[in-house]
């Protein structure tokens, strides 16, 4: 037993956990299957996928780096307005290219504000992230000649995707476009969180002091992941504008940031799929509550939040996973029993 772990062993374990699980293949198959099976539901499914991407972005900083943000909508909003302005003034006509530019704009903002966020304790972070989002909202309202003020950007017309696919009113192109973007970004995020860089982020989340003691440059890593997450949020915002042809002040709103945390908590933090599953559960809840009480679904969302916290997030996840886990255990013990009988 040596004192230090050789790099090969670390690499071996990292690769093992990074391997694709069969459930992951199932997840993406189901997602694509939904797209094929329910062509009349493209709009709501696009919303879910987009929200999933946005939550994935928050998961990168909250689940992996442990930064609690109350103002993640700031980057969503910057992405949304960038994409809208680019399309409106015909600066970058091609949607995919405009998407990248909008994401980069959000990333620049993320990089600039990350230095403010990494300073101080949790509470200061909450305040600063919240403050930045509110600041941007106030700015967008102030410069209404650029942003359209409370009316939002109007008259956005999207050019065909890659010059080939026209955005249709049923949202078919929009849906597959969003899914494709999500999948590419998901692969990238997956690669990042399983890399040594991602492992070091988890070390920082668990104990920043120890992480810096073993030689991890804590602040540089946090700046990097914050910028990266801002890029993702910007892309989600740009997708919002491109698929709905709309950008209004509420992209910056506090409710959007708060809902996002709920989405992530519903799905669970720190395993990338949390945001995607959470987005589905959240939209289903929202639909159900809207049918029950059209105007007051906010009450039920609030109740869900309170109940989740009172029961405890870990316990809740244990309950949810109880059935699948016990089935898996039964299958496994069945297999070994069968193997023993032979």
């Amino acid at each position: 037993m040596t004192m230090s772990t050789p790099p090969e062993i670390v690499g071996f374990h990292a690769r093992r956990t990074a391997r694709w699980h069969w459930a992951e293949f199932a997840f993406w198959t189901v997602l694509i299957g939904c797209g094929l099976l329910f062509p009349s539901r493209y709009l709501i499914m696009t919303e879910i996928v987009r929200l999933g991407l946005f939550a994935l972005s928050l998961d990168l900083i909250l689940g992996y780096a442990g930064i609690v943000s109350l103002g993640h909508a700031a980057f969503f909003g910057v992405g949304a307005y960038s994409a809208g302005l680019l399309a409106l003034h015909g600066i970058v006509g091609e949607p995919v290219l405009a998407l990248l530019v909008a994401g980069l704009a959000a990333a620049v903002l993320g990089f600039a504000t990350s230095f403010l966020v990494i300073r101080g304790v949790d509470l200061t972070r909450l305040m600063v992230t919240l403050g930045i989002a509110l600041l941007l909202e106030a700015l967008a309202e102030r410069f209404s000649d650029i942003t359209g003020g409370t009316d939002g950007l109007q008259g956005i017309v999207m050019q065909p995707l890659l010059g080939l696919f026209e955005f249709d009113i049923f949202g078919k192109v929009g849906f597959w476009y969003t899914v494709a973007v999500l999948f590419v970004l998901f692969l990238l995020a997956r690669r990042v969180v399983h890399s040594p860089f991602g492992l070091s982020l988890r070390a920082i989340r668990n104990n920043p002091l120890r992480a810096s003691a073993v030689g991890i440059p804590v602040n540089a890593r946090l700046v990097a992941i914050y910028t990266f997450a801002a890029f993702y949020a910007g892309i989600a915002g740009a997708l919002f504008t491109q698929t709905t042809q709309l950008a209004s002040l509420d992209v910056f709103s506090f409710e959007r940031s708060a809902d996002l945390i709920l989405v992530l908590v519903l799905g669970g933090t720190g395993y990338l799929y949390g945001g995607l599953i959470g987005a589905l559960v959240f939209k289903l809840l929202q639909e159900t509550f809207s049918i029950l009480t059209p105007q007051y679904w906010l009450f039920w969302i609030g109740l869900v939040l309170v109940v989740i916290v009172m029961i405890g997030r870990e316990r809740l996840h244990r309950w949810v996973l109880f059935l699948p886990r016990s089935i898996a255990r039964a299958v496994r013990s069945g297999k070994t029993a069968a193997g023993g009988a032979e």
Partner: peptide, 8 residues
């Protein structure tokens, strides 16, 4: 989360 839920 809890207090945001209460606010909502």
């Amino acid at each position: 989360l809890f207090s945001v839920g209460l606010v909502f």
